[in-house]
Design a protein around this nucleic acid. Structure first.
Length: 272
DNA sequence: CGAACCACCTGACGGC
DNA sequence: TGCCGTCAGGTGGTTC
């Protein structure tokens, strides 16, 4: 589930409670979700001290003072929670024990997610991150706009394409398109420079607001403390097909773009 | 380059 | 109650 805002909220929460702590134990409840064997994974991180926790695209990065980095991709249903030691839950995949006895758990109901350990020289050539486009909150909307203006694909598909811009998923793509008044099936080359810049400015605004509201909780998402976010209460379109547009009162519609449900307002986001 | 598939998994929900 | 189809915050691969 987690898109950029949710991973960002988790990273900030973890940084606050984890920095300076030592990874005292690693427990592979479900080693099938490790990208490598426990024999190589465990020695790489065991005894490591957490230097900082951050994010790139939708990837959560726990950097150790040794230079080793734990990278978590949460995909649809992954959770990373730091809290009191507790018994193993049904969906726990990998658990870390900290030097203060606390527990850092990686759980994932659908098991799409994974955790990997990278040495410094490995992380920088990890193909997934290398292919990712710019961070939307650290890039000028005008620069982001140029990345879609010469493309023939649908704008919704381009927003979801991590090589175009990193970190955007189905929720925030739909919300940004609605705020900018752009139909999800509009082709990149047909948007026009001004509207494309507006779109990325709105994308930044919605991402910032979502971070400020602790992310969106639809089903599975919780932050690093296990708490739900609040931005789902601010959705203008996502998951609201058949309901009324808060802006104009029209009935919200949905189409499939790039295989994903795209909810939009036919009146505020006219096709063309 | 782009679109339409399928795959990976598990669970929730609605219809019959 | 149970079975079945559909859908879900993501990504990767194949094929046309």
């Amino acid at each position: 589930m987690p898109e950029l805002p949710e991973v960002e909220v988790i990273a900030r929460g973890l940084h606050a409670t984890l920095a300076g702590r030592t990874l005292a134990g690693v427990d592979h409840v479900d080693p099938t979700r490790l990208s490598e064997g426990a024999e190589t994974f465990v020695p790489k991180v065991l005894g490591g001290v957490v230097a900082r926790v951050h994010r790139r695209a939708k990837v959560l990065l726990i950097e150790l003072e040794s230079g080793m980095t734990l990278a978590f991709h949460l995909k649809m249903t992954g959770r990373v929670v730091h809290g009191l030691m507790r018994p193993v839950h049904r969906h726990d995949r990998t658990r870390f024990t900290l030097d203060d006895g606390s527990l850092l758990s990686f759980a994932d109901m659908r098991r799409f997610g994974y955790v990997r350990a990278f040495a410094p020289d490995e992380l920088c050539c990890w193909e997934f991150l290398c292919r990712c486009g710019p961070e939307p909150l650290e890039t000028d909307p005008a620069e982001l706009a140029e990345r879609v203006l010469n493309r023939n694909g649908r704008i919704k598909a381009l927003l979801l394409d991590q090589t175009v811009v990193a970190g955007v998923g189905n929720i925030y793509a739909d919300e940004a398109l609605h705020r900018a008044g752009v139909h999800p099936r509009t082709r990149g080359r047909r948007i026009g420079r001004a509207r494309a810049q507006r779109l990325f400015a709105e994308l930044q605004a919605v991402l910032r607001q979502a971070i400020a509201e602790n992310g969106s909780s639809i089903r599975d998402y919780v932050n690093a403390s296990g708490d739900a976010g609040a931005f789902q209460n601010s959705f203008a379109v996502y998951g609201r097909q058949g309901e009324t547009c808060k802006g104009c009162g029209a009935t919200l519609a949905a189409v499939k773009v790039a295989g994903r449900t795209s909810t939009f307002c036919p009146k505020c986001q006219p096709e063309r």
